[in-house]
Each structure stands twice: as structure tokens, then as C-alpha cells.
Design a protein around this nucleic acid. Structure first.
Lengths: 156, 156
DNA sequence: GTTGTGCATTGATGTAGATCAAGAAATGAA
DNA sequence: TTCATTTCTTGATCTACATCAATGCACAAC
């Protein structure tokens, strides 16, 4: 378990790496994302202070995700094996609950609802990343998010 | 931890219930699903033999999911608290990995790719449930799945 | 200052998949 | 068996969101 500092833009993990590390964010902001066949980025998660981020793939298989820093950050790095020994079941179950919500949202809610929920759930993130990244997290294009925001502003 | 038998169609858990139970399937097949504002069902998961199924919500809060039996089944019921004590971190991490795949698939793959992957990943389930339920799991309508299947049959 | 470079917005058009409606085929019950 | 119910398919139309393209803005580098 050691501490490192990374600069904004630095890539910690590439897709295809065999990476056995887990990152805990002490300060700053990381994200994980995939790049699809057409070269499009899809953000899987944001990790601000006190969050833990890693690819959930098997310890020995190549990662599916990239992880990089959206802000200058300070991280604690630990090995997955160690993490598996220390992880609290409770916090994993909470994470399962969040993913369940995300899946059901993707299947049943239109983009405007997903965006409103994001604003409620992660108000701090909204201030810290460009809108196109929120769009990517929501599974829509920046253009679509821009129109959603316009529609919300007209509702008021 | 007790064993019960349930008939096909029997509902084990309603959305809104405070349900602290976890079901392990000894034989048969369960599913969990939500119903959205427009009354549409969205299947969250299928649980065949040896799978564990439950709503991932907080122990004390109302569930988001329905759980029912798609076949006559034999189940082992345990309490969530007990389950949290006994759960293996490894199996939870595997589940996280599966959900990660599902989310990235919903965001980046067209329905035909999601269906092909489903066939590879859960070939047994395909034989046991009506197609409209697979459509529901994939986040598309039965009509759309029917057309996807037609397209696949023409590819060959 | 000027000249990028990335981001947000807006408009025009395209498309995957939804919805609606009708038949056909399979399944189950009496 | 027959009748009813559910499931699957097919066609016509609709819509949410994507794509493509142009413009305006902010902010950083020089």
C-alpha cells in the first residue's frame, strides 16, 4: 500500500493491461472508461475523494477499462489480492445496489430522467467535469445532453 | 436457513416490500424484475440452479424489485444479515464484473450484439424462458428481438 | 494582444428501436 | 379433441437519440 501523486490526464491503466491494482483516491478525481469498436469512449465511473476504483475483471485477465486522472490526484495503491482480503462485504453490496440502479435506469428511463438523477446523486461531480463526460456516463452524446439541459431550463 | 418449494408463477417478493431475504436456487428458475412508470417489466436477472438472488437494496429499505418463479423451484432462504456474514468477497467481485459488462454493453453495443453475447453466456436460459423475457433482459421489445433473430438467421 | 484547441450549442438529417395493429403458431386447459 | 391464451412474427408508422456540420465561446500558449 503506497501513495502516489498523478497529474491531470495521466493514464493509470490501459485496456488490455494485466493490472492487479486497486486505487483509492485521497484527493482529486479519477475515472474509468471503455473504448468501443467505433472508438467511442464510455465512462463507467467517476471516483472522487475516498472512492475506490479498479477494473472488476479477473485478477489474471486483461482489463476492459482505462483509468485516468481528471484532476491532479493523490492515490493509495494496493494489490487486488490484498483488497479482496480486506474488503468489507457491506461496501461491496452497496456497490452492487448502485450498479443495479444504473442498469435499470439504462433500460427504463429516458435520458432526461437519467440526467436529473445524476444531478441529485452526484451534485459535486457535475461541477468538476465537462458536460460531455456526464453525457458519456449517461450513455448519450454531448449534443443530446445539451438538448436535455435546454428542455429542463424551459420547464422552470 | 430453510428450504421451501414454490410453484411456477409464485411471487416471492413485491416491489415496496421490506424484504430481508436472500434466495438460493436448488432447482428451478427465478427471476427478478422491476416495473417502470409506464407499467413495463424490465428483467434484472435470471437465477437458475445454484444462483443466489435478492434485491441489492439496503436491508431496511423497501425493495425495488419483484422476484418470482419461472418454473417450479426448490429454494433455500436465508436472511440478508446472515448472508453478509457468510458471503465470499470473491463471488461478490465476480458479480460486480458481470454487472460492469452489462452496463458497458447497454451503453455501447447494439441489440444484436447484446443478444449474441447473451446466447454465448447463458445458453441454458435461452431454452427455458420465452423470448419476450430475453428481450426484457436485453432492454428491447419482443418485436425488436424477433427482428434481430431473423437478421441473424439470414447471416448464415 | 493573436492564434489555437477543446467545449457547448444549434440546426438538419439519419436510424435503431418503439409502438401499434393484425395474423399465425404454439401452449395449455377442459 | 376443442377452445382460449399466450407467444412469436410481420408490416406500417413514430420517436428518441445519433450523426454530421456550422457557429460561438472560453481559456491557454505564445
Amino acid at each position: 500500500m503506497r501513495e502516489i501523486k498523478v497529474k491531470k490526464g495521466q493514464i493509470l491503466q490501459h485496456k488490455g493491461d494485466i493490472n492487479t491494482r486497486v486505487y483509492k483516491v485521497k484527493s482529486g478525481l479519477l475515472r474509468s472508461y471503455s473504448i468501443d469498436d467505433k472508438g467511442k469512449e464510455h465512462i463507467y465511473m467517476f471516483a472522487p475523494e475516498n472512492w475506490i476504483i479498479a477494473d472488476n475483471c479477473e485478477t489474471s485477465t486483461p482489463c476492459n477499462l482505462f483509468i485516468d486522472a481528471l484532476e491532479d490526484s493523490v492515490l493509495l495503491i494496493s494489490e487486488k489480492e490484498e483488497e479482496i482480503r480486506n474488503a468489507k462485504v457491506k461496501s461491496l453490496v452497496n456497490r452492487l445496489a448502485a450498479l443495479q440502479d444504473r442498469i435499470l435506469g439504462l433500460m427504463s428511463s429516458p435520458s432526461i430522467e437519467r440526467y436529473k438523477k445524476f444531478l441529485e446523486t452526484y451534485p459535486a461531480i457535475t461541477q468538476r467535469v465537462p458536460q460531455r463526460m456526464i453525457a458519456s456516463y449517461l450513455g448519450i452524446t454531448p449534443e443530446a445532453l445539451s438538448r436535455v439541459r435546454k428542455e429542463i431550463s424551459l420547464e422552470k
